[in-house]
Amino acid sequence: MEKKKDVIRETDAGAIRLGKTLLREARYGALGVLDPETGAPAVSRAGVATDVDGTPLILISLLAAHTRALLADPRCSLLLGEPGKGDALAHPRITLACKAVKLERGTAEQARAERRYLNRNAKAKLYVGLGDFSFFRLEIQNASLNGGFGKAYLLTRSDLLTTGPAVEALAESEQSALDHMNAEHLDAVEVYAHHFAKASGKGWSLTGIDADGIDIVCGDEVRRIFFDTPLADAGALRKVLVEMAKTGRGG
């Protein structure tokens, strides 16, 4: 009897990079929850950002059915990846199996989530302060990556999250670095966009910095740029950004 072919490919560096890219570039996703009354799966759309380590962040109303479902059973899934031209199934997407954790107002964790979320989703400032809205971290358990037809992978939590000594230190200095770059060095950000992300147009700005790389936006377009090597300490950031600008201008 012929052995059944395994449709899951061996996880490699390319799959991990694609998974991280889909995660970091997401502006929204399909959130799957379990209805507390029937146990049936339910899916809705939620705005998405990431914490410094790559953990997805969502801002949802306590009046919404999916929020009540998460409070009753924190198990959930999040589908990320935007279809482009042609067949939607030919474009990469990733499904994350997660456990939702509600962040309490007044905590440092909630304040960081709010800061990073608003950097990515500025329009949320209209309702972030309303009493019925709360932030949740979607703690990744594992993931299924589909890079297109015949390109299926299984990824672990450690494959997708950013770890290391620089993570927390960069979180503390991130906003000042973003404000400085966006106020004084938008020309460099544009160089990053054109050279490293192969993006076009003007008006790019920085919305996120972490040990793995940077996130840039222009209108509704989001791009992820990875550093050649993850930062070992927060003090290396300035040197890396300066070198990237030199490389981009030289290229």
Rank of each mutant, 00 (worst) to 15 (best):
K102V: 15
A113C: 03
S77C: 10
C98V: 04
L126Q: 07
R24C: 11
I16R: 15
R75N: 12
C76P: 04
A100Y: 03
E25N: 06
I58Q: 03
D87A: 11
R120A: 15
L31H: 13
A40P: 00
L62G: 15
A15M: 09
G106R: 08
A15K: 07
K20A: 06
E25W: 00
V101L: 12
E104G: 03
E114A: 13
R75V: 05
Y127C: 08
T107N: 10
K123N: 11
G129E: 06
E114Q: 13
D87L: 12
A69R: 02
A72N: 08
R93T: 05
D87H: 04
L130D: 03
G54A: 11
T50D: 07
K125Y: 03
A88C: 01
S44H: 02
L79E: 04
K99I: 14
L103C: 05
D87W: 07
D53R: 11
K85L: 12
I60A: 15
L103Q: 09
A108I: 09
E109M: 10
C98L: 09
G106Q: 05
E25C: 13
V33T: 15
N121H: 15
Y127T: 04
C76Q: 11
E104H: 05
I58R: 08
T67L: 03
A26E: 13
L78E: 04
T95E: 02
G131N: 10
L80Y: 07
T38R: 07
R45F: 14
E109C: 03
A113V: 01
L63K: 14
L34M: 13
G32E: 01
R112E: 14
R115E: 13
L63R: 14
T67N: 08
A111V: 09
D53Q: 10
L70T: 01
S44Y: 05
A124G: 08
H91V: 05
G131D: 08
A88W: 05
T107Y: 02
A26Q: 11
L63I: 11
R75T: 10
A113Y: 00
R116N: 14
L130R: 08
G84R: 14
L80N: 10
A49N: 04
G29K: 01
V48I: 08
E104V: 12
S44I: 05
A90L: 06
H66P: 13
E114N: 01
I16C: 12
R115G: 00
R105I: 00
G19I: 12
F133H: 04
A46P: 00
K123P: 01
L89P: 00
A49V: 09
A65D: 13
A69F: 06
D51C: 10
R120G: 05
A108D: 13
V128K: 06
L22K: 02
R115A: 13
L34N: 12
L103Y: 03
Y28F: 15
L63Y: 09
G106Y: 02
A26Y: 07
T55F: 01
E82W: 06
Y127N: 11
I60L: 09
L70C: 05
G32C: 06
L96C: 12
L57H: 06
E82N: 08
G106H: 09
E114Y: 02
L79A: 14
L89M: 13
D87N: 15
L96A: 10
